[in-house]
Nucleic acid binder design. Sequence first.
DNA 1: GTAAAAAACGAACGGTCGTGCTATATTTGA
DNA 2: TCAAATATAGCACGACCGTTCGTTTTTTAC
Lengths: 196, 196
Amino acid sequence: MSKGEQTRQQIISRALSLSSELGLEGLSLGNLASELKLSKSGLFAHFKSKEALQLEVLQAAIELFVRDVVRPAILEPRGIRRVQALFDNYLAWVRGSGKARTCIFMGLSQEYDDRPGPVRDALAQSQQDWHDSVARVAGTGIATGEFRRDLDVEQFAFEFIGIGMIFQQSYKLLRDRKAERRARDAFAALLARSRR
Amino acid sequence: MSKGEQTRQQIISRALSLSSELGLEGLSLGNLASELKLSKSGLFAHFKSKEALQLEVLQAAIELFVRDVVRPAILEPRGIRRVQALFDNYLAWVRGSGKARTCIFMGLSQEYDDRPGPVRDALAQSQQDWHDSVARVAGTGIATGEFRRDLDVEQFAFEFIGIGMIFQQSYKLLRDRKAERRARDAFAALLARSRR
DNA sequence: GTAAAAAACGAACGGTCGTGCTATATTTGA
DNA sequence: TCAAATATAGCACGACCGTTCGTTTTTTAC
């Protein structure tokens, strides 16, 4: 990896964790540069525009999410085991793993839900993909016979993700120590309803 | 109402709808002033600081929420009827009523979940109050005998609000036309589980 | 109607924003 | 090793930020 590509990755990585706190609009190049001990113009030279950087940050977040949440779950056996793994990984992601203090996608969903542009489009696509992934995994539960044959897998995904969202609010904003327990209870109820 | 108080209210009202789109940090005094055809300094004279304005905007949002969501529900008879009314009003609020394009509280929850300060404190308190309100209303369902006596009303509130959050994402970001249907189905399932 | 009080304005401050441009420093490949 | 390519720095730009201050206009109260 060339020197340029290397700093490029560092920039995106640092920008990702900054964006988790401040959003992609709140992210500022000056701030980012000084944190990386780079000049603002030196940093800027790596990207055509701030928006281009934002898109790369979003892309990096998606790759991280797939790597840490989706892919490991798919290694589990089809059916409930896999659904449960997906939920566990999702909760762990929302809880945050050191550098990423908050789930960036939920913040961005709020930030861009009425701010048109390429960032919004990419974000919406990624969230749609996430819904689809959950639905697909739920589908394997039908295939194994663990879930009801008439289970609406998209409805399942809808509720699955909703639990993650309220978990984030309870855990991060309200600092509710029972948040994780509540999320797991809610998910258990969702599972129970889905069984045949 | 004096002239000053009158413009003050206009400022807060306009600031509220702007904040629903851009967040309380994204709100800028210059922008706000020009929308109201006021000079920036003339506008600023009404508030000691931007943060003071932010707090007033938050307060105004809370009052609106209580007026449109909580209070009308309490006019309904205790029990499931009241719970259902609360949910209906909540969905209508999230869907947005013309001027308020998005539910400001969900955006702010993301914006401030790791940004300490008075705004965060006031926001967290208001959201805690909202959880408590839902739980209290659910409690009336136990009192009427419609809900299980061992129902965990705080868990009920947790899931209730989670449905609202995923509804907002599906409706606003993903533009899913089935979003409302999904939210109502999820809520129906929650109700069913809560019945005795 | 007039004087006091309140409200709105205009200009300016020091900062930071994203973004160019030019020059210097560093890395790369033969 | 040395030239070409790349990476970074420095500086400046116009725009906007929140905030302050002194002046002017408008409202209020007698």
